[in-house]
Amino acid sequence: MKRFRSYLALGAAMLCAGAAPGAQSENRNPTCPASPNWAANQVMTLTPLDRGGQRVLLAEGMITAGLANRLRDALNADDEISEIWLRSPGGDAYAGNEAGRMLRTEFPGIVTRIPSGWACFSACNFVFMGGMVRIVEPEGQFMVHMFTHTGNRDAIRQEVEAGTDNTVALIGEIEQSSAQLATEDNDFLIRMGVSRRLLSEVMYATQAVGDGETRRCLTQDEAYDYNVANVRE
């Protein structure tokens, strides 16, 4: 199948080359572009088309529940697709994890790519890591933050104002849910062959909530050091 042949050809093309991330940045997130190029679609669109003599699937927009099934259907409907190109602000962390596992299990020859100038953030990271062959092009942004369920600060403030009992209960729920997600993330990285140092040194070392929120874009060297990407073109 073309998909598997593409995988073998790319596997033989591993090279050692480096590139710096985009020059434009914001003070709070100095390693990332000020305006990341991710799609504004509220539900990720999946568009098969021909690019550069090969069949690719553009995956653009927010990751929501059911993405794994939608990706499966799209790939089964067109077995000429050899790569998935990702451009996403993230979304449902569990859905991203599920989609990545599905790709590795059911489509082991698929290539995932973050094209130059595109950004793959948060839950998108896990879809990307589901590819057996993973490419982050120079100027492509593999952008991470600490995964958390506390994105709605107004809800937390309301609970604090409601009283101590409510606040303690909310914090307990957050801690339990975050610990469960961290365990799943760790297991996912092991299965995908990605260094677990990515969690301890980057993903869970970056604040995700509050005025000091930061994003982290891996350099090309970091992407290969953590084995997030495993092919350089």
Rank of each mutant, 00 (worst) to 15 (best):
M1N: 12
K2C: 04
K2T: 03
K2D: 06
R3M: 09
R3G: 12
F4V: 08
R5G: 15
S6P: 10
L8H: 13
L10F: 02
L10D: 12
G11F: 02
A12Q: 12
L15N: 11
L15Y: 15
A17S: 07
A17F: 10
A17N: 11
G18M: 11
G22V: 03
S25G: 08
S25W: 00
N27M: 10
N27D: 06
N29A: 12
T31V: 05
P33K: 09
A40T: 13
Q42T: 09
Q42E: 09
T45E: 14
L49V: 00
G53C: 07
Q54G: 07
R55V: 00
L58S: 12
L58V: 15
A59V: 01
G61S: 05
I63R: 11
I63Q: 09
I63V: 14
T64G: 10
A65V: 05
L67S: 15
L67V: 12
N69L: 08
L71F: 00
N76W: 01
A77N: 10
A77M: 03
D79Q: 09
I81E: 01
E83Y: 03
I84A: 01
L86V: 14
D92F: 00
A95G: 04
A95H: 01
G96V: 09
G96M: 02
E98P: 01
L103P: 10
T105C: 11
T105P: 13
F107G: 08
F107D: 13
P108F: 01
G109N: 09
V111N: 15
V111I: 01
V111H: 06
T112F: 03
R113N: 06
G117K: 13
W118M: 13
A119L: 03
A119C: 10
C120V: 02
S122Q: 00
C124K: 03
F128A: 12
M129S: 04
V133T: 02
R134N: 07
R134E: 12
E139Q: 15
Q141N: 10
F142T: 14
F142C: 08
F142L: 11
V144Q: 08
F147E: 06
F147P: 15
H149N: 10
T150H: 09
D154N: 08
I156L: 14
Q158L: 11
E159F: 06
V160T: 06
V160R: 07
A162C: 04
G163A: 01
G163C: 06
D165T: 11
D165I: 11
T167L: 13
T167R: 14
V168P: 06
V168M: 07
A169R: 13
L170G: 01
I171R: 00
G172K: 00
G172M: 04
E173C: 01
I174R: 10
I174W: 02
E175T: 10
Q176K: 13
S177R: 02
S177A: 03
A179I: 00
Q180P: 12
Q180F: 03
A182D: 13
T183A: 14
T183P: 08
E184I: 03
D185L: 14
R191D: 14
R191A: 15
V194Q: 04
L199M: 14
E201I: 03
M203G: 12
Y204V: 08
A205I: 04
A208D: 10
V209G: 05
V209I: 15
D211T: 05
G212V: 06
R216L: 05
R216Y: 06
L218A: 04
L218F: 00
T219Y: 00
D221H: 07
A223I: 02
Y224W: 09
Y226L: 11
V228L: 05
A229N: 08
N230C: 05
R232L: 08
R232H: 09
